[in-house]
Design a protein around this nucleic acid. Structure first.
Lengths: 194, 194
DNA sequence: CGAAGGTGTAAGCACTCGCTTACAACTAGT
DNA sequence: ACTAGTTGTAAGCGAGTGCTTACACCTTCG
């Protein structure tokens, strides 16, 4: 998996390898089921280095979330955000290997240390992005409800693997969800104004 | 907390005490963060008895889910099910103590042993109940999407505790969700039939 | 009564966890 | 070449995990 013969005395590369390994493992198993020994082994690195560079397992998790959500959100138009999350969630599961970055959140939120990191990350990035999609007064609440739905779908489909949702055609799911979201984001707080 | 002076040699009462303690702790902390020692201590019982009566931690979890979902679903009309779940989720959090039975699922699903128990329990009971609320062809898929939304809300609000959803007025949330659900359950697979 | 079996308890086994420590190996500056 | 500082490693600490075992207690029935 690693190209070179053996990495030697390159702190930047070591840090990056740890970050990559941690990202994959947190997405596959979640925060608490991932051990620092696993991460270090997957990165081909001694586990003591993990603590040298990241301080603790929790800080490593925060670094992974920050890295990944920057990739998914920053520099992309917010209109496509729900669809981008949904597509990732609907395609990444089932078949092997690659896990959506959001899977790391879905599998980790029930650990209090991970949840603390998540609250900040989600509020600052995802809710803020989704709230731009409506001009209703309670935009942020609606954004949270959208986020909750997407997360719930990821939870039931990708993590729990429950049928029929887990086996359903991605297009069919996307059609239902897109319709639901647009209804949810429609302005209703001013009942009749026209 | 326990009324009597000391329970003595009553296997049925011991089993019930373990079930109650486990139900509360699984809801508060989830499957993997709950230890068998905690359960036994809370029940006022030696932990070896837990294994005598339930065999393993996983079987204890299954027994708790079965016990609780019977209470929530059986003998109740399915029309009220989404609302009943939602109300529980929206009221139980925040203030102290009492946790919704569903919280045990929300906090446990990312553990593979718990997930296995959950898939069966959810499919057989919750999805089946919700699917009765629509006559669309893909009733069960829609039911799963409703379930996913309710679970997502519970996850973001009650477990994660993320604002603004966690602090939002229950009625406001219920209004949004009820509207979304009814749209989601409307028949759309036959585009124009009237 | 006295054996039998259900019920409760203390102790501990074998293992894993996050994290630390003591030390070796390498590189860079002078 | 010699020192100083950075990078890497092996070993292990202390705490906690699910689960088991050996044994004491109490009740019941022949």
């Amino acid at each position: 998996m690693t190209g070179g013969p053996r990495r030697k005395r390159d702190s930047a590369a070591t840090k990056e390898a740890l970050l990559q390994a941690a990202s994959a493992l947190f997405a596959e198993r979640g925060f608490s089921a991932t051990t620092v020994r696993d991460v270090a082994t997957r990165a081909g690195v001694n586990q003591a280095l993990l603590f040298r560079y990241f301080g603790s397992k929790q800080e490593l998790f925060a670094a992974v979330l920050d890295h990944n959500s920057t990739e998914l959100i920053a520099g992309q138009p917010p209109e496509g955000l729900p669809r981008r999350i949904l597509d990732g969630l609907l395609s990444a599961d089932q078949l092997s290997g690659e896990e959506h970055p959001i899977a790391a959140m879905l599998r980790s939120y029930s650990d209090e240390r991970a949840a603390h990191v998540l609250r900040e990350e989600l509020g600052a990035r995802y809710t803020a992005g989704l709230a731009e999609l409506t001009d209703a007064e309670d935009a942020e609440l609606r954004a949270d409800l959208v986020l909750a739905w997407l997360f719930g779908i990821g939870m039931v489909r990708s993590v729990l693997g429950k049928s029929p949702l887990a086996q359903a055609d991605p297009d069919a799911v996307a059609r239902h969800v897109t319709r639901g979201i647009s209804v949810l984001l429609e302005r209703t707080d001013l009942p009749d104004e026209r």
